[in-house]
């Protein structure tokens, strides 16, 4: 071999063969990381502390229960779409394709090795964009899942409102899940925590909550795709703006006016796409642009003669 300089050596070493991990070992490692994560969460449990909290909780829970059963002994529970069972903690996690490559780690939400929905990155109230096509995945014994009817319901934890999300038979394996279903879900009509319940042949299979954010900012025929609860003072890059209508200009100006400060700002949004909206077959033009909200407060907003109001919140308000 000829004389090597430092640069030659590094170049030659780059040419050395690269090896890959075996798929089953890859899978095993991912499972061990997930297992370690669960164990660590469990380790935080302190029996001493739990004992004290249980005693306090017992006083607060038992008193109203005893009181209510005494005062309203005849009042029975109303029927519900969603039976009660212990809810599990959910998280985002990836599915694995046939080469053990991760799929959807940012938008597949549920309980690993149990049930999940691959849908939008965030659920937003009254938004059909995220739920127009979702994948539902389940893990378990395939013959107890495939072909069986999945009833997926949601119940608002505060208001008790209920929604039937899906009620159809499951299809077979997809990615590393044992059963799946492609479905479009109805919109969540209000923000807050919704408890999802998966029923297979009327029996509870999994239960976990999803958080639904406040709706996007609508003003007349325009929608700024940011949840109202996420608008704080600061810079926002590549915000998406939808405006109803075809053949709209390539660039539009979004105006912000702060009446108290008598301060106006203008931001340019650039056309990205034009499409037909599935829910009403209207043509919609999609723009992107950056916005800077200088301070919290109430603003007036206007774009292409669509106007409305928006509130820039303080994080403490949440």
């Amino acid at each position: 071999m000829e004389h090597l300089t430092s640069k030659d050596l590094l170049k030659k070493m780059k040419e050395l063969p690269q090896f890959e991990m075996e798929a089953n070992k890859k899978h095993e490692t991912i499972m061990k990381i997930r297992e370690a994560r669960t164990t660590k969460t469990k380790r935080k449990f302190s029996f001493q502390k739990a004992g004290v909290w249980a005693a306090i909780a017992a006083v607060f829970i038992l008193f109203p229960v005893v009181y209510l059963t005494q005062v309203f002994p005849d009042q029975q529970k109303q029927g519900s779409l969603v039976p009660n069972q212990e809810s599990q903690e959910a998280d985002y996690f990836a599915l694995l394709d046939e080469n053990m490559n991760p799929v959807g780690s940012d938008y597949n939400y549920g309980i690993p090795e149990k049930a999940s929905i691959m849908g939008p990155k965030e659920w937003v109230a009254n938004d059909e964009r995220g739920s127009s096509k979702v994948f539902i995945f389940l893990w378990g014994e395939q013959d107890k899942l495939s072909g069986k009817k999945l009833t997926l319901t949601a119940k608002h934890k505060k208001t008790g409102d209920e929604l039937l999300l899906s009620d159809r038979p499951l299809a077979g394996k997809l990615y590393n899940a044992d059963a799946h279903l492609v479905s479009s879900l109805p919109v969540f009509p209000s923000d807050g925590e919704w408890e999802l319940t998966y029923l297979i042949d009327e029996e509870i299979f999994a239960q976990y909550p999803v958080y639904v954010k406040e709706s996007y900012l609508n003003f007349e025929d325009s929608t700024l795709l940011i949840s109202k609860m996420d608008i704080f003072a600061g810079e926002y890059e590549k915000l998406q703006l939808e405006v109803e209508g075809a053949d709209l200009p390539l660039e539009v100006t979004l105006k912000l006016y702060h009446p108290e400060e008598k301060n106006s700002q203008e931001f340019t949004f650039t056309k990205e796409d034009e499409f037909i909206r599935a829910k009403d077959n209207k043509v919609v033009t999609m723009y992107t642009g950056n916005i800077t909200f200088l301070k919290s407060g109430h603003y007036e907003v206007e774009v292409l003669n669509n106007s409305g109001k928006l509130e820039v919140r303080r994080p403490i308000n949440q």
Partner: peptide, 15 residues
């Protein structure tokens, strides 16, 4: 959280 971050790094840097 730690678990999710490490899993993400596993996908990125395992090779």
């Amino acid at each position: 959280d730690a678990g999710r971050q490490i899993e993400q790094w596993f996908y990125e840097y395992e090779i």
